[in-house]
Design a protein around this nucleic acid. Sequence first.
DNA 1: ATAAACTTTCAATAATTATTGAAAGTTTAG
DNA 2: CTAAACTTTCAATAATTATTGAAAGTTTAT
Lengths: 167, 167
Amino acid sequence: MEYQEAKEKFISTWGSLGTLWGINKAMAQIQSLLFISTKALSMEEIMDELKISRGNTSMNLRQLMDWGIVTKELIPGERKEFFTTEKDVQELARHIAKERSRREIKPVIKILKDVSSIKDDGTAKTKELIKQTKALHDLAETADTMMNKIVNQEQNWITKSLLKLIK
Amino acid sequence: MEYQEAKEKFISTWGSLGTLWGINKAMAQIQSLLFISTKALSMEEIMDELKISRGNTSMNLRQLMDWGIVTKELIPGERKEFFTTEKDVQELARHIAKERSRREIKPVIKILKDVSSIKDDGTAKTKELIKQTKALHDLAETADTMMNKIVNQEQNWITKSLLKLIK
DNA sequence: ATAAACTTTCAATAATTATTGAAAGTTTAG
DNA sequence: CTAAACTTTCAATAATTATTGAAAGTTTAT
């Protein structure tokens, strides 16, 4: 496999994985393009490379910046803006986990808490709703906590020792 | 909050979370309905409760069965089929993690391996592609392994000790 | 065998989500 | 100040994905 083929394969695979996990294709592809680029890219370069429109590029770059995984880079003497992504996979995972937790998991945990706190009126169906949503609440909270802790850690020693422990 | 409101809130929240993570709404809602039901439900009951068509119900029930989280239950004397979901959250998480790993993560890991194994032609861009996809490969593999181990374990003691360790 | 009770399939349609492109907005250089 | 270089916005459109409903298929009871 040659460079060009490998590059295209990587970008398109990443795009499909994104889609599968609720992240739009263009967004995932822009990020992956930056991830393997040796230098910051301009909007023009991204558009050309991925064959997507200016508007699309602009909007998705913004979202990536909102997620904290892409940053603008100002190159002295250049009028246009250049973009880079976080290059360290650990940091990247940290950002993504943190954001998904904040935006998606935490709000659901809150609702599970509310729902599982309704008054027990003694009927079987109410008891079941309370029991099941409570179990889900606890699981979600545990998973969320673990996720964040693992991903936030000064990483290496702890992850490695964890891995050893559970392997 | 009354039973009915809590129930609707739970089902619709679960549906939206599903959507956000690439799972279709009807599928997530059917599962959540079964999850808080005190008994197995027929197709008719599911359709009525969620206001979805017969075809939609049938197809999504099938998918849920493919995922291994819903099973048919034959009730003696009844002609129609009844459905239940795995009621234990731990088991539920196990099934989902296992399937997503098998269907989505493992294939991507394979591609990352291929891409990161291309011949190093000495250029900076090839070196970067190799380095970055290799890092992603290692991260994905570690995360996948951890996930599966954690979720597969006889659970309680190990999860609890992990939590203590990283808290 | 056949009719009733039920489920599955799938082409048509609807709903949702992503993408375009051009107009409006902003910033910088002269 | 104003023109050029660039970015953002957003209504229109395209692409994708979900849903319907009715016909075809299957199973069971008689």
